[in-house]
């Protein structure tokens, strides 16, 4: 079986969206993919960060544990997963480095991505569609239980698994 490479990128303040990204990455690993986890750091003033308990600590931790996505990550990837919270819109500064790098790789003809999944807002899905990538819709995942957080995490794991299988099948 050829390796399938999945780039999982997320934007998270307190760790909830990070948890979804980790679940998606885990699903990809369970589907025997290689994964890279990347973090989009939110731009914010110090006082805004300090107004939200736990943000600064998590921000420091995530800055240690993750790097931002690079062009070589997009060149490496067969599949993309992006997890973003609802507050992050398409025009937000957090997402622009992601799409700029993605567009640069696509323009250079070195993008090999054949499947993508979005955990988050519809705006991001639309952006992926514009870039001509194939989406794996979230709403095809089965409902597993009534716990919204547990459900979202499990759904993310299944998305990671499915996007890997989709990329592998489309080679």
């Amino acid at each position: 079986m050829q390796d399938t490479n999945v780039l999982v990128t997320f934007c998270s303040r307190l760790g909830s969206t990070e948890r979804l990204a980790l679940a998606a990455a885990l699903g990809a690993v369970q589907a025997r993919a290689n994964i890279r986890l990347r973090w989009l750091r939110e731009t914010a003033e110090d006082d805004a960060i300090d107004r939200i308990p736990g943000w600064r600590e998590n921000r420091s931790r995530m800055a240690r544990e993750y790097i931002a996505p690079r062009e070589i990550d997009f060149q490496w990837a067969d599949a993309l997963v992006i997890a973003i919270p609802d507050r992050v819109g398409m025009s937000s500064p957090e997402l622009s480095p992601y799409f700029e790098a993605l567009k640069a790789v696509q323009s250079a003809g070195t993008l090999h991505v054949s499947a993508a999944a979005v955990l988050g807002t519809g705006a991001a899905e639309a952006a992926f569609a514009q870039l001509g990538l194939t989406l794996v819709p979230l709403d095809q995942s089965p409902v597993l239980d009534q716990d919204p957080i547990k459900h979202a995490v499990e759904r993310a794991r299944l998305q990671g698994h499915r996007v890997t299988e989709a990329a592998r099948a489309r080679r």
Partner: peptide
């Protein structure tokens, strides 16, 4: 001190 291996996968 304070450095390490970021999130990565094993199987």
């Amino acid at each position: 001190p304070g450095r390490g291996f970021g999130a990565h996968a094993h199987r």
